[in-house]
């Protein structure tokens, strides 16, 4: 592993670059195909509304994948990610309005865990349209 960020250069509270990820219907169809998750709530508005949703929603695992990019782009080496966990708290609603939705991800170093292994805990805040869509979202990352 070759993380580009040095353990010595971060401290508790260090912010990672804030990121936004757009998501539209075409993106969800593409993710459905690549991941094999063809649940119609992720592409079929009629079905989504029939089961009581406001509209088509993004795959939870898609949101989790986007949030991880804040860390993997920060370290450069995705292999530096040792642990990653989230709770799915609210859906990301994706209207068919030519714009779709935006996932916003803020992250910070919450703890320096191990000076020998040079590991840190990173806490993520993931929102869409003002609602927190992932809860208890955190990662353990090995730095350089």
């Amino acid at each position: 592993m070759t993380a580009q960020i040095a353990y010595a250069d971060v401290e508790e509270g260090t912010q990672l670059p804030l990121r936004t990820f757009p998501v539209d219907r075409a993106r969800l169809v593409r993710y459905a195909g690549a991941s094999g998750d063809f649940n119609p709530i992720h592409w079929n508005e009629r079905f989504a509304k029939e089961v009581g949703l406001p509209d088509v929603i993004a795959h939870g695992m898609f949101t989790m994948a986007e949030a991880a990019r804040v860390i993997t782009d920060w370290t450069g080496d995705p292999g530096a990610l040792l642990e990653y966990g989230v709770r799915f708290t609210k859906p990301v609603v994706v209207p068919d309005d030519g714009k779709g939705a935006v996932i916003e991800v803020a992250a910070k170093v919450a703890k320096k865990l191990d000076d020998q292994a040079r590991t840190v805990q990173v806490d993520l805040t993931v929102t869409s349209a003002g609602s927190k869509v992932l809860g208890m979202s955190r990662a353990v990352v090995a730095l350089g």
Binding site: M64, G79, L82, E83, V86, F88
Partner: peptide
């Protein structure tokens, strides 16, 4: 059934 939590611990990529 709905998905509530997801966690990964990587031994290697």
């Amino acid at each position: 059934v709905v998905h509530r939590d997801q966690q990964f611990a990587y031994h290697r990529p």
